[in-house]
Amino acid sequence: MDNKSSSPWVRILVVATLITMLVDLYLIFEFAPTERAMGHVQRIFYFHVPSAWVAFLAFFIVFIGSVGYLWKRDRKYDMIAHSAAEIGVLFATLVMITGPIWGRPVWNTWWEWSPRLTLFLVLWFIYIAYMMLRSFVEGEERSARFAAVFGIVGFVDVPIVHLSIRLWRDIHPSPVIAGGDGSGLHPDMKITFFFSLFTFTLLFFWLLVQRLRLEKSTVATSELKKQIAY
């Protein structure tokens, strides 16, 4: 079934993702130099930041899919939004897991109300609410409609949440968050970092395609049922 239903593009995507992932692992654990102050734990940065990027990307696609659905009323857009939301929640979770692992030795605390971590916590809640909404509404058309509205509201909210958290932190500065991520990266670190971003982006699209295919076959089954009923 795998080979028959997938287009050549999908197969290229699969292969490319697998290869870049292997290369990325090599870059992260062998190629990139060890950070002097933080040590090996800094390598988690190559997972942490790309995960954050992918989560944003996913939520943006939820937004696009939601607008598309309300506009065109085509199930396809809803499926894209739904799939992207699931993947987005997954990566937002990764951000919040890798963040504290990194932060524990560096900041000496498991949870720091840093602007970015707080933002992700809020994002996580928004999209968990999105998923809950989907499962608590009866009728797939209605559930798609409601989810689309919430997907739009949620995404529009992101910059405002970001601003308000930033402002809030400015007033109550956190104890020690010295040495921001981007400052003075070693060139090899930069290469690794950008390659990692690229890899995670590929991984995202691969997951999205897989998730969509799953959704499509579910729909195909119900279409078949409908035809039988007719």
Partner: peptide
Amino acid sequence: ISVNTKTREVMLPILHFPVSIPIIICSVQ
């Protein structure tokens, strides 16, 4: 939205709180 869901009373806060966090932060501050 929530009036059309199975769990009316719970759904509204779940949808409302995360989105209204900026309002809460700003108003409190």
